[in-house]
C-alpha cells in the first residue's frame, strides 16, 4: 500500500463513509432545523426589541440596552453551557437542542436589535415630523415611512451577522445535539476512522459556502453609498 492509498483509506474510507452517511444526513437535517429556528426567532425578537426601544420609554430602554450588551459580550458557548449544565440545578432541564436554539437566538436577538435600531435612528428626524404632521399615527409612520428605509440599510450587516451566528449551531455538539458535527464526531469514535469527520466538513461547506457567496453579492448590491 502506498502512502497515498493509506491516506485515502484513512480519511476517505468508502465503506465507513457509506455506513455513516445516513447519520451525517440526519445531522444536516438537525442543523437546518436549528438554523431556521434561530434565524426566525432571533430576528423577530431583535426587531421587536428595536421597535419597543423606539417608543422611548427611559427605564425600558435601559433594560433593553443592558440585555443587548449582555448577550453581545458573553461567548455563545458560555450561554449554552450555562443553560444546559446550570439550569438543571434550578429544576429546569432544557435539552441540548433547546439550549442551543435559545442561546443562539438570544445572541442573534441582541446583535439584530442593535442593527435594526441603528437603521431606525438613521432615518432623519424631519421625516418623522413631516409624517406625523400629515396626520399619520406613530405606528403608521414607523411602519410605512421609517422601517422601509431602515430595513434596506440593515441588510448587509444583518446578513453577515446572521450567517456567523447560524454557524454557531456546531456548538450544539458540546451539549450532545447530534447536528452535523455531533453526528460526525460520534461516528468517528464508533468507527475509529476520521472519514465521517471529513464528510461532516464537506456537509458544512455545501451548506454554508453558497450562503457566504450570496452574502458577498448582497453586500455589493445593497452597499452603502458613500
Amino acid at each position: 500500500m502506498t502512502t497515498w492509498d493509506r491516506f485515502v483509506d484513512t480519511f476517505f474510507n468508502g465503506k465507513v463513509m457509506l455506513k455513516y452517511l445516513p447519520d451525517i444526513l440526519w445531522g444536516v437535517v438537525v442543523t437546518i432545523e436549528l438554523a431556521v429556528l434561530i434565524v426566525l426567532s432571533g430576528l423577530a425578537a431583535g426587531l421587536a426589541l428595536a421597535l419597543l426601544r423606539s417608543l422611548a420609554i427611559r427605564p425600558l430602554n435601559w433594560l433593553i440596552i443592558f440585555i443587548v450588551d449582555l448577550f453581545r459580550s458573553l461567548p455563545p458557548l458560555v450561554i449554552i453551557v450555562l443553560m444546559y449544565f446550570g439550569l438543571p440545578y434550578a429544576e429546569v432541564s432544557p435539552s441540548g437542542f433547546v439550549s442551543t436554539w435559545l442561546s443562539l437566538a438570544f445572541v442573534l436577538m441582541a446583535f439584530s436589535e442593535e442593527i435594526f435600531w441603528a437603521g431606525i435612528t438613521s432615518v432623519h428626524k424631519g421625516q418623522w415630523e413631516a409624517s406625523r404632521s400629515t396626520g399619520l399615527s406613530f405606528g403608521q409612520t414607523l411602519m410605512n415611512v421609517v422601517l422601509p428605509q431602515a430595513l434596506r440599510l440593515t441588510i448587509p450587516p444583518l446578513t453577515n451577522r446572521t450567517i456567523a451566528i447560524t454557524k454557531g449551531t456546531a456548538l450544539g455538539t458540546v451539549v450532545a445535539v447530534s447536528e452535523i458535527l455531533g453526528a460526525a464526531s460520534s461516528a468517528m469514535s464508533n468507527s475509529y476512522n476520521p472519514s465521517p469527520l471529513m464528510m461532516g466538513a464537506a456537509a458544512y461547506l455545501v451548506l454554508f459556502l453558497p450562503v457566504v457567496i450570496l452574502a458577498r453579492r448582497l453586500e455589493r448590491r445593497f452597499a452603502w453609498k458613500k
Partner: peptide
Amino acid sequence: FRAFPPLVLLILLFAGLPFA
C-alpha cells in the same frame, strides 16, 4: 474558511490530524 464553523475547523485539526 469563512464557511467553516470555527469549532468544526478546530475539531478537524484536533481529532482528525492524529490519524495522519
